[in-house]
Design a protein around this nucleic acid. Sequence first.
RNA 1: GCCUUCAUAGCUCAGCUGGUUAGAGCGGUUGACUGUUAAUCAAUAGGUCCCUGGUUCGAGUCCAGGUGAGGGCGCCA
Length: 517
Amino acid sequence: MYSKFSTFSRIIKMNTKQLKGHIGQIVTLKGWVANRRESKTVVFINLRDGQGMCQCILGLEGLGEGLFQTAKTLGQESSISVTGKVVEDTRQFGGFELNATDLKVYQNAKDYPISNKEHGIEFLIDHRHLWIRSRRQWAIMRVRNCITYAIHNFFQGQDFVQMDAPIFTGNAAEGTTDLFETDYYGKPAYLTQSGQLYGEAMALAMGKIYTFGPTFRAEKSKTRRHLSEFWMIEPEMAFCDIFENMDTIESFLRSVVQEVLEKCPDELKILNRDTSNLETVAKKFPRLSYDEAVEILKGNQDVDGKNTLLTIEEDIKENAVRIIEIEEDIAQREAAIAAGGMKKGAINFNQNKIDTLKQELKQIEEDQRNMPQWLESARNFEYGNDFGGSDETVLTRLFDCPIMVYDWPHEIKAFYMKRNPDDQRFARGVDVLAPEGYGEIVGGGERETSEEWLVEKINEHKLPMDVFQWYLDLRRYGSVPHSGFGLGLERLVAWICKLDHVRETIPFPRYYGRLEP
RNA sequence: GCCUUCAUAGCUCAGCUGGUUAGAGCGGUUGACUGUUAAUCAAUAGGUCCCUGGUUCGAGUCCAGGUGAGGGCGCCA
């Protein structure tokens, strides 16, 4: 309010999140036209400014003839500034609207490509630079931001030191996955697939550390769970065994989810997220050994009186019933439209309903094609193998919160995993599987401490010994029990927002075949 | 790499066992309407039916190959 220009002092610049407490005052909002409707003497504009939304009433009376005519021509996503009086209106998103007395147009945009109608994924991804402006994407990006903040919050609050691991690496560390090769001053270098080995070194320097950085994998995966470039959080803790590690993972995930629930209720509402499926993180996460998990997966052991295979079979039957329902619904609506005599508004409504139903139908039909294969895979699961994506979905079907699977056959885990001293068949790895079909969001474990064992494993995996000499130094000088894990940020965002694809969790996704925009 | 589904207007989709001039809704444009939430109502413009070849009197529709996309498996977070 401090201004030597008394004539300007009554006008306050602010964003749409700050309107509360300014009812009756004249304020200025700057933003973009998200939507516009008009009648003879009034134009309604949904103004978005990145913080939120506010409906602005641009009336002939308040603006005068000239500005009112301008307001009528504004296209979607025009950039404007509106001055007016703040009025409470509980019907509006945010609870307020602005009665305009002045309008400034930065640019009158024409033919904005993304309409309020539904679009296909290919079109939207091609327009990702604009798509991120839309309501749903706005909500996702804000949840992602909240999650990022909550992650730092958790670790910083527990005296972890954040470190940045190198992105260029000289060797394919774990040897398994396909890496992106680049030219590094004439030598081949690879984009990192994990900062873990460097994290271990840093943990022995700092006690507790976490990395938060990009990760690159050149896997030609075409699934809703994979990206070529994604962000991973990798904590590493000295003097920590697998059970303390699991305790940390559990309180970490619980803390992040609860912070999102607390800080992003509006965003989760926009996403139609049923938050009761997130509140379950308050419960103790079930911890299953690999052996137990296999028994449940194969249907030999029930959980709370429910059987995995029978439950999936029931899901398939329910889907079949739903398909018939949808087909009948569509047929009825199409017949009603074809019969004629329907008002245009009613036709429009039914047409939209048909579109939505068809979308749902496509999705269910796809599930129906895939689910029998999942059942087959679960039934024929061979003890000793790693779980596949579908096995994770089948296994987690019976749980409503994340579960932890630990003590895996050592042959299928990375060379640096510690053997269970009580049973040499197993390595002390742990995977966290999210509910609702999201699968593995965390992979981690306790690390091998013995130089001798590590050398044996490196040879067994046929990895080049020379590049691991620095890593073996960590076992030569003050080796201690230590553990850590890796969390896939995008998979966590996808689960918390309940998205059907990780590509919506990151501003500009990079995945097989996609490099633009 | 394997399996599977698909490609028609700017967008989302119909188009049946091959048959005259290619259909709807949304969006665009023009007009009507004091309060709308993807407003409503009327009029109007808008097409290389992904590409190449084949079958046929006749192909958006059938067949073969190609290209592009969605999804599942493998691999993984």
